[in-house]
Design a protein around this nucleic acid. Structure first.
Lengths: 229, 229
DNA sequence: AAAATAAAGGTAAAAAATACACTTATTAGA
DNA sequence: TCTAATAAGTGTATTTTTTACCTTTATTTT
């Protein structure tokens, strides 16, 4: 705080931009929308909006995510503040970037169409407005770091998933192949997955058991201090 | 960005608050100032200020840090955005918290006195205004994580330091004792320190060799992908 | 019954992390 | 000049973690 009254200070537009990640079983993707107004009309953009006077920045982020996906109680965290003076040619806008992890089949098709939204593989992100591409790059790095220490990846998978789906997710995030036996051993040794009796039978004749993430077991471990992977 | 014109949206006060860390050879400390105006006059506070229309948020953080310490080109990074509606009873203020690492003897005494600034050990932070104590707690956690992966700790030490001073720093940050031989072996194996011919002779009769951090060696390693400690 | 498919599972070798204690260089003081 | 005091400097054995690697099993289809 400064030593003079608040009212003498500049007020700024504060925006939120959401990097929305999804996983289709094969690739990591980000959900982008086609900007329908100037400046930069027609370019791809992150879903964003302005923070209102009477809502917290986090609330604004959740509101904006909800507008596009119809989803609430989604994994989301602050990424970074983009605060350059000239980042948005439309005005002085400070943007808080957030990233969210959603189950790719959970969003509302209707809302998606309304917003001209489309999933893009992270490896093939098109030209984007302002600093949005940079935001996605930073979000990817952050996800890579975070996922190694916290079990947030499950937010990208269906509630029931096979070990190979889980491994595929990590391979997509890290962009490298992992050894199946080592991966399985490590993830199971954490004791945060519950094996189901049911099998997934689409991708093999033998079928692979489903697992579910046991949040309570994890939280217990987390208190004791756990490195995730 | 929203689908209606920017001018219809709310503008907010955007503040920056700086957690300034120092190390006195023994303890990690934070530099606080005594707030001289309402609300919450007389309470301890982080050094802060408002972001001006014509400066970036990062520039504002550097300006504010310079106001208190007289220092520039200091290690500083964004910590987190504190955006609750009611966090500051004086008005709707979104605060970007930054943390900075300074060499504790480098600041300007004059500016410190002007601002009623004082160093507090992290273990004995007094009551503070708003959410500032929470900011310090978060900064400490972030520093602990960061320092394990990046060689930023040197910003808290004099240019020349002994291995025991360096170890002491890590012990202060992690809040636990480390084994001297293991620490020495590990840090030297990174090959980012240059041993000097000169010895520090105050704390022992034998004297301990000074080392300096070699930024170039580090950057070379960093490109190749390095876990720090 | 045979073939095809992907799932499941273990071991040995290498690397990294930990635990642990004596010798050395130097100065101050007897 | 000898002795005592002080912290610096140094190596090895043990445990844990990580990595590399392939055969057997369950099930379905033909």
């Amino acid at each position: 705080m400064s030593t003079i009254q608040y009212k003498h200070h500049d007020k700024l537009l504060v925006a939120v931009d959401c990097i929305i990640f999804g996983f289709d079983g094969n690739e990591l993707k980000a959900l982008l929308i086609k900007r329908g107004f100037e400046p930069e009309i027609g370019k791809w953009s992150l879903m964003g909006g302005f923070v209102n006077q009477q809502e917290s920045v986090d609330d604004a982020a959740n509101r904006i995510l909800g507008q596009l996906t119809g989803l609430s109680s989604i994994y989301m965290e602050q990424l970074y503040c983009f605060g350059n003076v000239t980042r948005d040619p439309g005005g002085r806008v400070v943007s808080m970037a957030y990233f969210a992890l959603i189950k790719i089949d959970d969003y509302s098709e209707i809302l998606m169409k309304e917003h001209n939204a489309k999933w893009f593989p992270l490896k093939r992100i098109p030209a984007m407005v302002f600093d949005h591409k940079q935001m996605i790059g930073l979000a990817k790095e952050r996800l890579q770091q975070k996922v190694a220490q916290h079990p947030i990846g499950f937010a990208l998978l269906p509630d029931k998933f096979t070990l190979q789906q889980l491994q595929g997710l990590y391979e997509a995030i890290y962009e490298k192949e992992l050894d199946k036996r080592n991966f399985t051993r490590k993830i199971l040794s954490l004791n945060i997955l519950n094996k189901q009796n049911e099998k997934e039978k689409e991708s093999s004749k033998k079928g692979a058991f489903y697992y579910v993430f046991d949040k309570k077991k994890y939280q217990k471990l987390d208190k004791e201090g756990l490195k995730f992977l």
